[in-house]
Amino acid sequence: MYSFKNDYAEGAHPRILQALLDSNFVQEAGYGEDSFTQKAIELLREKLGRQDVDIHLLSGGTQTNLTAISAFLRPHEAAIAASTGHIFTHETGAIEATGHKVISVETKDGKLNPSLIKEVLDLHTDEHMVKPKLVYLSNSTEIGSIYIKSELTDLRDFCKEQNLLLYMDGARLGSALCSDDNDLKLSDIPSLVDAFYIGGTKNGALLGEALVICCNSLKEDFRFHLKQKGALLAKGRLLGSQFYELFRDDLFFELAQHANKMATILREECSNADFSFLTYSPSNQIFPILPNALIAELQKNYAFIVWEKVDSTHSAIRLVTSWATKEEEVRAFVEDMKKSNEL
Rank of each mutant, 00 (worst) to 15 (best):
Y2T: 10
E10Y: 03
H13I: 02
R15H: 06
Q18A: 11
D22T: 06
N24G: 02
Q27T: 07
G32I: 03
E33G: 07
D34V: 07
T37F: 05
K39D: 15
L44W: 09
G49E: 13
R50N: 04
D52V: 00
D52Q: 00
D54R: 11
D54E: 10
L58W: 11
S59P: 07
G60K: 14
T64K: 15
N65I: 04
T67W: 11
A68W: 07
I69T: 08
L73T: 05
H76E: 15
E77S: 13
A79E: 05
H90L: 06
T92V: 03
A94M: 05
A97K: 15
I103F: 11
K108M: 10
K108I: 01
D109F: 00
G110F: 02
G110R: 12
G110T: 13
K118F: 00
T125P: 05
E127D: 15
H128I: 00
V135F: 02
Y136V: 02
I143N: 12
I143P: 13
S145E: 04
E151R: 12
D154A: 15
L155C: 02
L155N: 09
F158D: 07
L165C: 07
L166H: 09
A176G: 04
C178Q: 15
D180L: 09
D180R: 15
D183K: 14
L186F: 10
S187K: 15
D194V: 03
F196W: 11
G199Y: 07
N203H: 08
N203P: 03
L206T: 10
L207W: 07
L211F: 12
L211W: 14
C214H: 14
C215I: 01
N216E: 12
N216Y: 08
S217G: 00
L218W: 10
F222T: 04
K229P: 03
L233Q: 08
A234Y: 03
K235P: 01
K235F: 01
K235S: 09
G236C: 04
L239R: 01
G240F: 01
E245Y: 02
L246G: 10
L251F: 01
A256D: 13
T264N: 10
R267L: 04
R267D: 04
R267T: 00
E268W: 04
D274G: 03
D274V: 06
S276M: 02
T279P: 12
S281A: 06
N284E: 13
Q285N: 06
L290H: 14
A293W: 03
A296E: 12
E297Y: 03
L298E: 03
Q299V: 00
K300A: 00
N301M: 01
Y302R: 14
Y302C: 12
A303V: 05
V306G: 03
V306I: 14
V306S: 05
W307S: 15
W307L: 08
E308G: 09
E308D: 13
V310R: 08
V310M: 06
H314N: 11
S315F: 06
W323G: 01
E327V: 13
E329N: 13
V330Q: 11
R331I: 04
A332S: 04
A332E: 07
E335W: 00
K339D: 02
S340D: 07
